[in-house]
Design a protein around this nucleic acid. Sequence first.
RNA 1: GGUCCGGUAGUUCAAUCUGGUUAGAGCACCUGCCUGUCACGCAGGAAGUUGCGAGUUCGAGUCUCGUCCGGACCGCCA
Length: 585
Amino acid sequence: MYRTNSCGELRKSDEGKNVTLSGWIHKYRNLGGLVFFDLRDRYGITQIIFDPNSLGENIMETANRCRNEYVVTISGIVRVKPEPNKNLSTGEIEIAADNIFIENASKTPPFNFLDGKSDAKEDLRLQYRYIDLRSTKMTQNLLIRHKVTMAVRNYLSDKGFIEIETPTFSKSTPEGARDYLVPSRLYPGMFYALPQSPQIYKQLLMVAGQDRYFQIARCYRDEDSRKDRQPEFTQIDIEQSFATQDEIFALTEGMFADLFGKAVGVELKIPFERLTYKEAMDDYGVDKPDLRYGLKLKNITDITRNSNFQVFKDAPCVKYLAVEEIENFSRKRIGEYEDYAKHLGAKGLAFTKFIGGKLEGGISKFLSDDEAAGIISSSGMKKDGLIFFGAGKEDMANKVLGAVRIRIAEELKLYDSDEYRFCWITDFPLFTYNDEEGRWEAMHHMFTMPRPEHLDNMLNGRDLGNILGQLYDLVGNGVELASGSIRIHDPEIQEKVFTILGMPKEEYESKFGFMLNAFRYGAPPHGGIAPGLDRLIAMLCKEDSIRDVIAFPKSKNQNCLMMDTPSQVSPEQLEEVSISIVKEK
RNA sequence: GGUCCGGUAGUUCAAUCUGGUUAGAGCACCUGCCUGUCACGCAGGAAGUUGCGAGUUCGAGUCUCGUCCGGACCGCCA
């Protein structure tokens, strides 16, 4: 037998028991006579003591031979320590060993994790992921992830949802992200695509009468990674028939409240706040505002339209961001914000100081008294501070000030990292115009139903830029955590959307004919949502990157540093799938 | 595709701005001592292709260019 107990469970009440424990030597301390081990497994750490007064030479010799990360099985008697270790839950007891067996030795580990987190840089941690995951923090992250998926499955199952798996060998579809392709052996030159989401399958499950579906679904998008984006990631994919937007919201809110409680013991306030897309963009410059702090943007285009300041006069949109804080803003610091704005694509970042009730410095000398008065009164500033301006096209002003707002909040620590503020963003535009390609694109995806009052305009191709969709995002602390919509279930409306997106009938019939056809056999109204599991877990674990909540993530450049993937395959394998490699020069 | 940061002992960093003796320190590792430690302690020791390749220079870890790897951001991500 390897073990009778885990390394995290024995307490004072177990005193006198004969036990056997197996695990890793977390830290060995050899005092010359006495030898102490901290023995670790996933459940905790228990101290083991080897006493030469009561043990034979061969046992002491084995104990002396051990090193950190050796895997051992020891047996002995639980006894109360003379002085407890208050840092351990098992700190009141120790095991007086009477035997030890070395299951496996270990080379000296490439890094340590004695204080709960690996002390190495990320590339080394990823190369030795099987060691990194032994750390308390990573073990805890994986446990929280498990608790969340269990809570989600139980919650949704209780609400009548059933988990249904959908294929990972799917069909490449136009628009959206770049697909990962899988060559077909049986059909040379043909490819499957890995799904960017199970979107179409779950809609067809609704047509199939399955009514309430969910899936912890792996999704694949061949785009550049970020700390919150991996080429493969996981969604909690949900779809429901005969559902309104409000019902989807209530379902999601209940699920989040449930899983926050079960995974990390946090009580969420529901229902969540709601903002329209326009409100979010106007006030925060982004479609995923962090509501834990204010710092709202103000629009003064009406005031600056006739400005003597040429930059403002020429700008179709002028907004500003007022910060009631000036001590921390040296000229050098302001310069860093200007560089940041330029990095984001702006020409610059105009600013002025607000001191003693007046605008001073920066661009203040270019502003008329009326403009200054308008800015001061609209800002509502009471203390001295700094005002940043974004001037130009509206999306650029929003992009720059929205990003500066976030950076200022981070640097001035304007929020409590223990607080959770969720909000729904609603009423997104259905279509956005792509200037470069000169065509309309779907803002979310091409299966979203327009708002009922805009349906007529859409069917007639009128005023496309102002058509709003039954389309929503869930945002928490400035992170987009979920996205969803009420879908189109009418084949004629769906055909119209394909047409607006520039697809000829032959194209959409060949690519989506099966879906249109399905809609002609009695498709129920339906809608759903898909929370991103990785980002949600990262938030619960207070991790900055989703790489820290995925067991085996890819690096920035989509490599697995542990397995060294991607890798070459044999010419025979390529031959079988009719692929030849074109050498790059 | 672009901008930026980093790569020095097993590891985390210093030395780089301002080129100049033998590239240092903590932890880890090895040896010895040590019977109540709990990140044990004490003494000693070993450990380096400064990512790689060119260039400038009397001389390069340090400056320049290229390249590879890791990371942040922009583009991209229905």
